Simulated assay, not measured.
Amino acid sequence: MTETSHITLPAMRVSYEQGALDEQDLAATWHEQLALWLDEATKAGLPEPNAMVLATADLSGRPSSRTVLAKGLDERGVVFYTNFTSAKSHDLLATRYASATFPWYAMQRQVHVRGTVDKVSPTETAEYWASRPRGSQLGAWASPQSRVVSGRSALDSALSTIQRQFGESEQVPVPPHWGGWRIRPEVVEFWQGRRDRMHDRLRFRLGRDGWRVERVAP
């Protein structure tokens, strides 16, 4: 048997010593705290600080995860955009529930968001769509997201067809199969790595009387 790797996974570890997170450090609301950490991650120069790992499940409980980009944040929730015929959208339509994690490894932080989902309004979708580069707009029309294709040439051919279709158009319309999903959080957890794996985990939880903050053991 040929050895192809010298990686020793059991020995891989990092001591988390960059910061701490106390209750008095939190903003008044989960979305203000998330916006603060997003801003700090952006200023720190992290690549794609708005990237989040989105987890969904089908009706049989089989989970799937993938990275998407957060494109909206306010008191209503966290928004991302996708093809409504995609695998993730099929899961969301079936269960109406999702979780997402912002993994800021370089800052030894992560934020976990979990809650129900609903579609973003057509008006809000159109506003975001108008901000996208034309190439991204054309790609959204061309790609049959999550479907099996015969090869790369099939994708290139589909894009060429769409480019010809909208070649003379000043504006590319929003595809009927494309739009936004909003995760409406029930739980938002802020995680800060600490020494000896005694991490800080502060969680905003939505209850009958509104939001409350609780500390969770690492």
Rank of each mutant, 00 (worst) to 15 (best):
S86E: 04
Q171A: 10
A87G: 13
E168G: 08
G61N: 00
E168V: 09
L59S: 15
L21G: 00
D91K: 03
T161P: 08
G210Q: 09
E168T: 10
G167P: 05
S15H: 11
Q33T: 03
S65Q: 05
A142G: 03
K43R: 15
L155K: 07
Q108M: 06
E3D: 14
P49D: 05
S89H: 02
L21Q: 01
T4P: 05
G135S: 11
F166G: 04
D209V: 06
P185D: 09
K119S: 10
Y128L: 15
A55K: 04
R182H: 06
H112D: 13
G19Y: 04
A87H: 11
A142Y: 05
K71H: 07
P122G: 13
S136R: 05
M107W: 10
T2R: 05
M52C: 05
L54E: 01
S160E: 14
D118R: 07
P185N: 06
I183W: 08
A28R: 15
Y105I: 12
R201P: 01
W37V: 03
R197T: 01
V213Y: 07
D196N: 15
V68A: 01
R164E: 15
T4M: 08
G45D: 06
R152N: 09
G139S: 07
T67F: 00
A41W: 01
T123S: 15
L138M: 01
F190I: 01
H112W: 12
E124Y: 12
L21P: 03
H90M: 08
D156S: 14
Q18P: 11
T29N: 09
V188A: 06
T67V: 05
T56D: 04
P173W: 03
V117I: 07
P103D: 10
H177I: 09
G115Q: 01
H6V: 09
V216H: 11
V187G: 07
R66T: 04
T56W: 03
R195Q: 14
Q110V: 08
K88R: 02
E32I: 02
M52T: 00
R205D: 14
F80N: 10
W30R: 10
D200N: 02
M198H: 11
D25W: 10
A11E: 11
S160G: 15
P185M: 06
E48G: 09
W141S: 00
W141T: 05
R76V: 09
D91P: 01
S65D: 00
P175L: 08
L69Q: 02
G210V: 07
V14C: 03
A28T: 15
T125F: 04
D156H: 14
Y105K: 12
T2D: 11
L159Y: 06
E75L: 07
D22V: 02
Y128D: 09
S131M: 12
T56I: 00
L202A: 02
E168N: 12
V53S: 13
P176Q: 15
L155D: 07
W191A: 01
E17F: 04
T42P: 09
S157P: 13
E48P: 10
L155Y: 10
A154M: 06
A27T: 11
S150C: 13
T42W: 11
S64K: 03
A98N: 00
K119D: 09
R184M: 13
